[in-house]
């Protein structure tokens, strides 16, 4: 790849697709998957900029972001299971316990 700037177009597109997924979908599992998409897009731009600037700190950041993403999805899926046992649904519109 002699022009890493093309990678940024892919990264931005995937980020916006993930954002639209978070906005559109109400199924909590798919919302979590869209968050993973956004984190991956950010990782790609980290690696791209680290190649452009000839530094390795971007790739180190990707390691940390991956750890945070793993922790986030573990806790998030635990919350989804807990909610599903209480409400019998994975629809984010049905979560209105504070209103009642």
């Amino acid at each position: 790849m002699n022009d890493p700037w093309l990678m940024l177009i892919v990264s931005c597109s995937v980020f916006v697709i993930g954002l639209l997924g978070v906005i559109f979908r109400k199924n909590l599992l798919i919302v979590l998957m869209s968050i993973e998409l956004m984190l991956n897009a950010v990782n790609l731009s980290f690696v791209t900029f680290s190649k452009i600037h000839h530094v390795l700190d971007g790739q180190i950041s990707v390691l940390f972001v991956m750890t945070v993403a793993a922790a986030e999805s573990a806790v998030g899926l635990g919350l989804v299971i807990s909610l599903f046992r209480t409400l019998k649904t994975a629809d984010s519109d049905q979560i209105q316990m504070l209103r009642d």
Binding site: L6, M7, V14, I17, G18, L20, L37
Partner: peptide, 16 residues
């Protein structure tokens, strides 16, 4: 790059 990026964008559209 073309192949991988096309799969990435189409696949993420399919995810949502």
């Amino acid at each position: 790059f073309i192949i991988f990026s096309t799969i990435a964008i189409l696949g993420s559209l399919m995810v949502i």
